[in-house]
Design a protein around this nucleic acid. Structure first.
Lengths: 345, 345
DNA sequence: GTCGATATGTCAATCGGTGTCATACGGCGC
DNA sequence: GCGCCGTATGACACCGATTGACATATCGAC
């Protein structure tokens, strides 16, 4: 037995090996593997023991080929920030692990004219059962067209546009920005600068909208010169922050549409020797690790990225009806926001 | 033709479909697919056109099953920092893309007693041709044993221990730490604090070694109280920084074994109202995005993570002899290091 | 005119599962 | 006692590519 077992250990055991070992038909082993209803309890046990004995792991390739589900899904993403991708991958991965699904994380370049073909190739090659689309890819027309044409289910995380035919999960960017702006107003700020997100990103508009709505509600006049363009990166935040701080009547608080840009604002303020947060309050958005590693730590909106991804993946795996699920955000208070100092700066 | 093409578009085309379309034998298509030598140029073109026309993509599943290479490799990692993982994944991905290899990124938990089985399962299930191991997994004994037993090639990125039987790529941590320490000394610093990395991580020792070597060479006495334990995260850097800054005779520069901890030191210094970098120079290690988004921007060692990963992946794909390749690091000068101020603090 | 390298085709076997259909057993209603 | 249905299991073809053994055919070179 030891000799035989050793030999088996080096050769990948087969479903046929398992069947032989258990003294049953191959098909019965297959039924056990797939949780088919018509299998008696003793039979199931017998087969499971045989699988254990042989360290049997079914080959995905063979399963795919024989025409059923591949038990694989793909996560398609484009190079966002490392932190964002990490959270998204983690969320997808957790959901997949719980259900025994394999996850293929696939980067693409949305600007590449061949994206559609690349995605088509991915699906044809790997036979994935479904796809999770993360942020910038969610609105990439060639990809959406390819997926529609292939008739493969997919779920979108934080899409910018609506798509009645597929499920999506998202958060309320406008409300979150409104919350943060209101938080700043409640702290006593009246002149609040805003740095917009990347123009290609739909959420940017929503966040600006929330900022304006909160100002309106508080009866504070909107001042266009307090709104600066940005691109979701440190450099653009730094530049926008510099512009705002050099205004004759500069704002007492600056709300950046993400944490990277907020970090840029902090740098610009430090460079001007401002005491933070007394002479300038800064707020971010996303709650990336960055928010905790800059000084002062950023008050920001916690966007539940991992949970968005996990939920999206669960929806995809469970199948069922098309659903659109909104997840809650949270305002995280840290040290970067304080009441404006008495003295006009 | 348009009708037929439409029908074909919905059904995954076959190697037989391609053969029929090109008017050749299936075997010939296979030869083209696999770059077999005895195929004439016109024939190759004809077949390739047919493949194009039909949007043919060979099924990985079928290829795997028929016993040849799967053209897939796996990257196995454990949750390091987001930035680290992002760089590693990017590097692997680039190398794979260039060679038409599919990459499976697979997180594991090195502390899990089943890691070995998980890896075994991954290989059996997916039939990957080889494996890239990234940092903490490189020294995970159960995983190494499983891979050895399965006789599958693997390459390790920045391993802590040597393993004569497999290839690896790495950088010279000791020399890099030596370089940075020397840089601080050249700037005029004599009292230089050091914050160690996570004790589980082999590189931590190397970096400490480099720090001491540079001090020795400069004839500066090593002072144990200037060396603090750390764990590669912001919090431990903050704590260690606080301890160092509260010393009666505090250092004029602090060198942290990674950027996250250096950011912690900056926060501790800001909190004490120190003017940076005049009253305290801070140096990091790794050159993560963090290094550019804190204030002042960190002088740090650029660890070529993406390049390490790319190189490792290339070695794996190319096969060939076992090699151990060292990649160069770079000292990046930013704003966080300056000569010590005249006045003793 | 034969040999050998190049170029293509035929055919069957194979990889490891799953789908389809067939079969066997038991209980239930009439 | 007969037919029927639900449960439980088995036999066998098939998914889509690769691979090997062989069979040709063409073209030069010797």
């Amino acid at each position: 037995m030891s000799a035989e077992d050793n030999m088996r250990a080096n050769i990948r055991p087969n479903i046929r090996d398992v069947a032989a070992r258990a003294g049953v038909a191959v098909k019965t082993v297959s039924r056990v593997l797939n949780g088919h209803p018509y299998v008696s309890a003793p039979m199931r046990e017998k087969v499971e023991r045989a699988m254990q004995d042989l360290d049997f792991v079914p080959s995905v390739a063979a399963r795919i080929l024989s025409g059923s589900k591949s038990n694989q899904i793909a996560l398609i993403y484009d190079n966002h920030s490392p932190y964002y991708m990490f959270q998204i991958q983690t969320g997808c991965w957790e959901a997949c692990k719980a259900r025994g699904i394999r996850l293929l994380a696939q980067p693409v370049d949305v600007a590449d004219p061949d994206v559609g073909d690349q995605v088509r190739g991915l699906v044809s090659e790997t036979h994935v059962d479904g796809i999770v689309l993360s942020s910038p890819v969610t609105d990439c027309v060639p990809v959406l067209r390819a997926l529609d044409a292939m008739d493969i289910p997919f779920v979108r995380i934080s899409p910018g546009t609506n798509h009645a035919l597929t499920s999506s999960v998202f958060m309320d960017d406008a409300q979150a920005a409104d919350d943060m702006t209101t938080h700043l107003i409640n702290a006593g700020h009246r002149r609040i600068g805003f740095i917009k997100g990347h123009p290609n990103h739909m959420a940017s508009d929503d966040r600006l909208f929330g900022y304006r709505r909160a100002l309106d509600r508080a009866g504070i006049a909107f001042e266009p010169q307090l709104v600066m363009p940005g691109a979701f990166d440190f450099e653009s935040g730094f530049a926008a922050g510099a512009m705002l701080l050099d205004l004759r009547d500069r704002p007492t608080a600056i709300f950046a549409a993400n944490d990277d840009m907020a970090a840029g604002v902090l740098a610009a303020a430090h460079g001007r020797g401002l005491a933070l947060p007394d002479q300038l309050s800064v707020a971010g958005f996303d709650d990336t690790t960055l928010a905790r590693t800059v000084w002062p730590a950023l008050t920001t909106i916690h966007q539940p990225m991992a949970e968005l991804a996990r939920t999206a993946t669960e929806i995809l795996i469970n199948g069922g009806d098309i659903s659109h699920r909104r997840l809650a955000h949270t305002l995280i208070e840290r040290a970067s926001v304080a009441p404006p100092s008495r003295m006009t700066p």
